[in-house]
Amino acid sequence: MHLRPQIKDPNFLRLYDHWQSIRMERPVPLRADIDPTAIGRSLRYVWLYEYLDEEDTYRCRLAGEHIQEAFKRSMSGLLINQIYSPDIAALVRGYWDKMRNARAIVHGESISPAKDDNTYLRSQRLMLPLASEDGAIRHIFGMTRYDFDTFDFDISTGIDGSHLDIIPCADLED
């Protein structure tokens, strides 16, 4: 699959191209190979979570300024269930677990709850797995760009990932 033509935002392209360049012939690049200078101006939109085996959860290791602005707080060091409500944490965790287990990326648009009651944010997302030296996927590296124009949304219809595509890394051709 050729994902690159579907990515319109230059910040997302910069991150995707860097991830692809350090991936080389491996299914997933190593976390140690990430070069922040390669994505420079896009750093404000990036985030990094680490999977903790013993706790069976994810911890935020990095959240750019744009991400912190959306959540209205610093997120570094927090566990996923300290950042999101239980239902949203389960949804996010479901994607990340699939990414780790299937060695896949996620790309698309989604709806996220804002910190204000009954308002939501539209967002563009790119989520990329990173491997440790032992080959295990222990990090999810991503970029999110929020549209800060909040809107009302009927939560009873659910927040789902219908606009988020899960793409196995082995299927990427660009």
Results as ranks from 00 to 15, higher is better:
53 D>F: 09
53 D>M: 05
53 D>E: 13
56 D>W: 05
57 T>A: 10
57 T>G: 11
58 Y>C: 06
58 Y>P: 11
59 R>E: 13
59 R>T: 13
61 R>A: 07
63 A>W: 02
63 A>E: 03
63 A>L: 03
66 H>Y: 02
66 H>D: 03
69 E>T: 11
69 E>Y: 09
69 E>R: 09
70 A>I: 01
71 F>H: 04
74 S>N: 15
75 M>R: 08
75 M>G: 07
76 S>P: 13
76 S>A: 14
77 G>R: 02
78 L>E: 11
82 Q>D: 14
83 I>F: 03
83 I>L: 01
83 I>Q: 07
83 I>V: 05
84 Y>Q: 11
87 D>S: 15
88 I>R: 03
89 A>R: 01
90 A>C: 06
90 A>K: 12
90 A>H: 08
90 A>N: 06
92 V>D: 08
92 V>S: 06
92 V>Y: 07
93 R>M: 06
94 G>L: 00
94 G>E: 00
94 G>T: 01
96 W>F: 07
96 W>D: 04
96 W>I: 01
97 D>R: 07
97 D>L: 12
97 D>C: 09
98 K>G: 15
98 K>E: 14
99 M>L: 11
100 R>D: 01
102 A>G: 09
104 A>G: 01
104 A>C: 00
106 V>M: 11
106 V>G: 14
107 H>T: 07
108 G>E: 01
109 E>W: 02
111 I>R: 08
113 P>G: 03
113 P>W: 00
114 A>L: 01
115 K>I: 12
115 K>Q: 11
116 D>N: 12
117 D>E: 11
118 N>R: 13
118 N>P: 15
118 N>S: 11
119 T>R: 14
120 Y>T: 07
120 Y>H: 10
124 Q>A: 15
125 R>W: 06
126 L>P: 15
127 M>F: 09
129 P>R: 12
129 P>A: 12
130 L>M: 10
131 A>K: 10
133 E>C: 12
134 D>P: 04
136 A>E: 02
136 A>P: 00
137 I>H: 06
138 R>H: 00
138 R>W: 00
138 R>A: 00
140 I>D: 02
140 I>F: 03
